[in-house]
Write a protein that binds this DNA or RNA. Sequence first.
DNA 1: TGATGATTGTGTAAAAATTAACAATATACC
DNA 2: GGTATATTGTTAATTTTTACACAATCATCA
Lengths: 205, 205
Amino acid sequence: MQKLPGKTVERLSEYRRTLINCLSEGKSFIYSHELAHMHHKTAVQVRRDIMLMGFSGLQRKGYDVKEMIDAISEILDSPEGQNVAIIGIGHLGTAILHYFKGKRAKLNIQALFDTDPQKIDRIIDGIPCYHPEKLDDIVHKYRINIGILTVPPEKAKELKDQLIQAGIRGILNFTTVPLKVPDHVYLEEYDMITSIEKVAYFSGK
Amino acid sequence: MQKLPGKTVERLSEYRRTLINCLSEGKSFIYSHELAHMHHKTAVQVRRDIMLMGFSGLQRKGYDVKEMIDAISEILDSPEGQNVAIIGIGHLGTAILHYFKGKRAKLNIQALFDTDPQKIDRIIDGIPCYHPEKLDDIVHKYRINIGILTVPPEKAKELKDQLIQAGIRGILNFTTVPLKVPDHVYLEEYDMITSIEKVAYFSGK
DNA sequence: TGATGATTGTGTAAAAATTAACAATATACC
DNA sequence: GGTATATTGTTAATTTTTACACAATCATCA
Ligand SMILES: NC(=O)c1ccc[n+]([C@@H]2O[C@H](COP(=O)([O-])OP(=O)(O)OC[C@H]3O[C@@H](n4cnc5c(N)ncnc54)[C@H](O)[C@@H]3O)[C@@H](O)[C@H]2O)c1
Ligand SMILES: NC(=O)c1ccc[n+]([C@@H]2O[C@H](COP(=O)([O-])OP(=O)(O)OC[C@H]3O[C@@H](n4cnc5c(N)ncnc54)[C@H](O)[C@@H]3O)[C@@H](O)[C@H]2O)c1
């Protein structure tokens, strides 16, 4: 299928997150306006997203929560799953590892990398940690195609290059430095300072 | 001045981040296309953002880096500064604290809150940590107007309510649950899983 | 069983964001 | 000093995103 707009993909991910909660609370149907309300969106927005992904609901009953989760998963999850590595297991890397572990069946954190001797060749939170010199080997061995970068900023470029060299397909960059990647690699960057400054700007009078 | 579009604010924050680096590397002028390239944006986009904030450069010389940093700061920083609290000093809260400390002169982390007896009434990374029952007091005492929420998801709503009760103006929510806030409070939410799923989606074939 | 009303699905309109196009202009070079 | 050229600033066009409007549909209940 044709790729969906990035914005829609983001929202589908968010919807799924709440839908999973709904399901665990025993809610089996949901209206577009309910879901919209939970996400500060409009009902039309939600329905349009659902339409774009080719799913449909029942008039007057809303959307079957379980089915919709499956439909979103059909879109977001690749059937054979994807393998992920975290590079840099400091404060942030640990937070991500801890948070992520076991949350998404189709996204498996397979390896961690760090230069700290305390961490190398240890199992952290159930996942093995290696020295970055083994990056190429491990990426191939475990068919890792996504890398999460949480190393110190001055190391970011170097590790990014290693990841791409090893054949990675997507990078999520949390370091402070914007990176350049070739066209065939997908890059997403996030910086908390931007979020905080945005909050500061809009919450100021 | 009229508020700028959120997207522009985000980009200005990002530009400033790189401009500060440029300055420290001794670069005193920068062209729109250089800045654009560093941020995966177009030169027009950069120039438009600059125009929107009412700054201007020199033809054939580009933008004075120092002046532009000041111009962005004029927009993003409130002159008297803003005070920030982090609620929940676990893995993520610590990562943020550590990362943020001293990075922005006009955004001061004034207080931390946690229920862990190991942390209460200790100084962590230079900032005092309190029990959340003191939230109202401390928020008033230090004129805190921004809260960063990194508590366990099931505590998020409760702490959000306390923050708003105490008169906070903006919230940055990192917990997994979307929150509802009244109109006079600005809310920004971020979830890494969405970012990772987006990377996974667009890096899949 | 038929009317009622709430909800979905979607064509169309509106708004927002981005990009193209280009005049204005300052610098460098001859 | 004049000319060529690279760059800014900005209007207009385009694209993308969101919202409106409403027909189609189907549970519910009289
Ligand atoms: N984007 C954000 O929102 C955000 C928030 C916090 C931190 N950060 C950034 O994330 C990065 C990590 O932050 P942190 O607080 O976890 O820092 P940290 O110092 O706690 O962690 C960095 C880790 O990387 C490891 N490391 C160093 N060199 C390495 C190498 N060559 N290969 C592999 N691992 C290496 C270190 O041993 C350490 O464990 C920094 O760049 C920081 O600026 C970003
Ligand atoms: N949005 C993201 O990208 C992202 C990433 C990682 C984690 N998270 C979320 O962030 C939150 C924190 O994650 P973490 O890994 O740091 O978890 P954590 O368990 O390490 O930290 C939570 C902290 O909150 C404290 N706490 C518990 N109850 C509290 C209360 N009532 N008041 C104040 N503090 C309280 C705990 O003592 C602990 O220190 C979780 O909700 C997690 O799901 C979000």
